[in-house]
């Protein structure tokens, strides 16, 4: 395209990040290491196939099936795979249970490790320097910033994901959840309740 015909309505130049990514994609495609359609397919995995909807199904099953919950707490990887969820950044899963005396919260202080098959890619705040630096040293203050006030008599357990084991919080079932279907229960489970920075929705 000559300068004369260049469409100046697109005034935003591509960022240097965008240019560098385009360079990598072109070089690797020309080398035959990647297929751009496979890149699309992987983006589809990350945007649509994994995500907190999967984790919500795990929690709902545990809330409605005591035997499943026992399997989930004993061997998270296998029990989560029973529902069809497995894969990268989730090949080794440990599920930790919130109880009236214990509140669990997950972080990765060294990078941003997060259980992709059940929760998808992490939200920006999970990757932020503020969350990574502070939740291990002042968990109560950080949780209060999420609107979560943990009673003094409840112990907070912070799980710093420094290995390839991925931690997943099983929140407490909200009161009044008996006689609800699994699908209804899954609708109560928030992403943050499975990280430990939130609670499930209250039953109206």
């Amino acid at each position: 395209m000559s300068e004369a015909t260049h469409d100046h309505s697109q005034t935003e130049p591509p960022s240097s990040y965008a240019l560098r990514v385009r360079a990598i994609e072109t070089v690797l495609t020309e080398k035959g290491l990647i297929d751009p359609v496979s890149v699309d397919a992987f983006i589809d995995v990350l945007e649509n196939k994994v995500g907190p909807r999967n984790g919500a199904r795990v929690v709902a099953r545990a809330w409605s099936d005591e035997a499943y919950k026992r399997r989930l707490l004993a061997d998270g990887t296998s029990a989560i795979a029973e529902l069809g969820f497995s894969g990268g950044e989730g090949a080794e899963m440990v599920v930790v249970e919130n109880t009236p005396g214990v509140h669990n919260v997950v972080v990765c202080t060294l990078c941003s490790c997060y259980p992709w098959p059940t929760l998808g890619l992490p939200p920006a705040w999970y990757k932020s320097f503020a969350y990574r630096s502070r939740v291990v040293i002042e968990p109560r203050t950080v949780l209060a910033e999420f609107g979560l006030r943990i009673p003094d008599e409840t112990e907070i357990r912070v799980w710093d994901s420094n290995s390839e084991v991925r931690y997943f919080v099983l929140p407490e079932r909200p009161p009044g959840a008996e006689n609800r279907t699994e699908a209804e229960l899954a609708g109560l489970v928030t992403r943050d309740s499975m990280i430990g920075t939130g609670l499930p929705k209250v039953i109206p």
């Binding site: 202080t109 060294l110 990078c111 939200p123 932020s128 503020a130 990574r132 630096s133 502070r134």
Partner: peptide, 14 residues
């Protein structure tokens, strides 16, 4: 990258 326990990054914005 080894951020655990550092101060000064401010509140967590969500």
């Amino acid at each position: 990258h080894d951020l655990g326990g550092m101060h000064g990054f401010g509140p967590v914005v969500t």
